[in-house]
């Protein structure tokens, strides 16, 4: 297990959440999960995370509002946006994310993005 803080995955689709979680765990990361932005903020309260993998389209509190809330609370954590191909880059710029992954993404790309951007 790596010594660094866990990765937080915020994604409303159960299958995508599951496959991302298991890929990260296989890579040796601790993983926290949330199925919408509100849960994501609650998971953040549980303790420091090294990176947030953020879906944009979620119920209750979407990715855009989650990111705004991070800014408002002055929480400084790397964010990688995961969303549909046409919008990924646009959203990443809008919320000032560190990187973006276009769905459907390649697992190698996802793991590389996490390795590159996480706080260590």
């Amino acid at each position: 297990m790596r010594a660094s803080a866990p990765v937080l995955v915020v994604e409303d689709d159960a299958s995508i959440l599951d496959v991302v979680r298991s890929a990260l765990e296989a890579e040796g990361y601790d993983v926290r999960t949330a199925t919408n932005g509100k849960e994501g903020l609650e998971r953040l309260a549980d303790g420091k995370v090294s990176l947030v993998l953020l879906d944009m389209r979620m119920p209750v509190l979407d990715g855009w509002q989650f990111a705004k809330e991070l800014k408002r609370r002055a929480i400084d954590v790397p964010v990688v946006v995961m969303t549909a191909a046409q919008n990924a880059r646009h959203w990443a710029e809008e919320i000032g994310a560190d990187a973006y992954l276009s769905k459907p993404f390649d697992l190698d790309d996802l793991l590389a993005a996490v390795a590159r951007h996480r706080d260590s």
Binding site: I16, V20, A26, A85, F105
Partner: peptide, 22 residues
């Protein structure tokens, strides 16, 4: 339709790649 297809496609791709990595 595109968005609806992308969601399970992302999962399928992930699982297949996961299996290959194993």
């Amino acid at each position: 339709v595109g968005h609806e297809i992308q969601v399970p496609l992302t999962a399928v791709r992930g699982y297949i790649q996961q299996a290959i990595r194993q």
